[in-house]
Design a protein around this nucleic acid. Structure first.
Lengths: 145, 145
DNA sequence: TTTAATTCATACAAAATACTCCTAAATCCG
DNA sequence: CGGATTTAGGAGTATTTTGTATGAATTAAA
């Protein structure tokens, strides 16, 4: 069981790094980040591209270009990021993967899992990127410390 | 983000079916289960094999053979199953996949995620297969209702 | 003892995910 | 304008997961 996908991990790591290093300019060079975080440049680029398409980030091409937040990190929740990185339906999916599962025709774990999942959901929805990024340092986001 | 893998889903569905249909004999034919649950016979066989190797199930070859529980379903927790199906370290893994992450050198989400994960863990550890299997019917475990 | 039923083991195929590479488009600077 | 820099997009490769096929080992029953 991998709770989030590799792309999701990379995306979160990059965003946390950005959240904790917000300075004047506002744009982050993807190559620098990929090196600082030990993530393949091309792969990270693609992941951040998706976040741009989903409206979490904005990007700027050309010299000194990069990606930056569209909203304040206080206004971006962990739930937003999980949905953008892992799919909009994460907080609604049946644990057993049964497509018909719901209140009408619940699988045996429906009620049980819904309770747990809703807790996770409200937890993630009340946690902002700013909350998480506060005490972040670069080395805490690297694979090789 | 898929909370559990496909194999995990199949394994859980099969076990729930078994838990809710415990009759006299105690052994369940894998082919019958695979048909009843719309899961590929060979794939299900492989998954249940692992559960046998991990000591959750016992098996019996030959005519009228099959798989059955080694312990009472009251004594098998959801946490046991998740660990068997998805890996022993599920409840200990870093959300960001950082191998060095721990109390000593926490990633920015360490404390936060540990809280959530430990809740999930204790929830799963206090829920038995018997608890979940109680009101299970076969059609609630099928993909096509 | 032969035959059939069934799980076990292994190899193979397909699909999904992870990762790489190349070119295009936008932007800046001379 | 022309060249350098940087993200965007798409195509291609590798790895992991999912699913299929085949045969061996074990047991029961005729």
């Amino acid at each position: 069981m991998r709770v989030i996908s590799k792309s999701g991990e990379y995306g979160l790591r990059a965003l946390l790094h950005m959240a904790s290093n917000q300075d004047n300019k506002g744009f982050f060079n993807i190559r620098e980040m990929s090196e600082g975080l030990d993530i393949s440049f091309h792969f990270l680029t693609k992941i951040l591209q998706v976040l741009t398409q989903k409206g979490i980030l904005q990007s700027y091409k050309g010299p000194n270009g990069g990606v930056g937040f569209l909203k304040k990190t206080e206004e971006i929740t962990l739930a937003d990021l999980v949905r953008a990185l892992e799919g909009d339906d994460f907080f609604d999916k049946c644990l057993l993967g049964l497509p018909g599962c719901g209140d009408r025709q619940p699988c045996p774990m429906h009620a049980y899992w819904m309770g747990i999942r809703n807790n996770l959901k409200s937890e993630f929805e009340t946690t902002s990127l700013a909350d998480l990024g506060e005490n972040t340092r670069l080395q805490h986001l690297r694979l090789i410390p």
